[in-house]
């Protein structure tokens, strides 16, 4: 349990938010041309990093907006939060 600084609402309890998994997974531009391996990679394979990870979160019980977060999964420390469409901070 930790606090999350929503870029739209400010600091709120983590239980107001829904984790949306790994960030910056690009949707295939031409889905019809994807091989089965590429589909598997896109749909299922995850980095699942122990350490600093880029992920998406949704303020589900608040403004309901999506945003990105850089978080250390080994101690739940939040490194940075940035809006959708913004460039991820260099790590």
């Amino acid at each position: 349990m930790f606090l999350i600084n929503c870029p739209y609402c400010g600091e709120r309890d983590q239980q107001e938010f829904k984790a949306g998994g790994e960030a910056h997974i690009e949707r295939p531009k031409q889905p019809t041309e994807l091989s089965d391996d590429e589909w598997a990679e896109y749909l299922f394979m995850r980095k699942n990093i122990k350490g600093v990870q880029f992920e998406r979160w949704n303020h589900a019980h608040g403004c309901r907006k999506w945003f990105n977060m850089v978080r250390d999964t080994s101690n739940d420390e939040i490194k940075a939060i940035y809006k959708m469409g913004e460039k991820p901070p260099a790590q």
């Binding site: 829904k18 990093i49 122990k50 999964t73």
Partner: peptide
Amino acid sequence: TDDYVSYT
């Protein structure tokens, strides 16, 4: 389970 990835 929690819904976020964590190794804590």
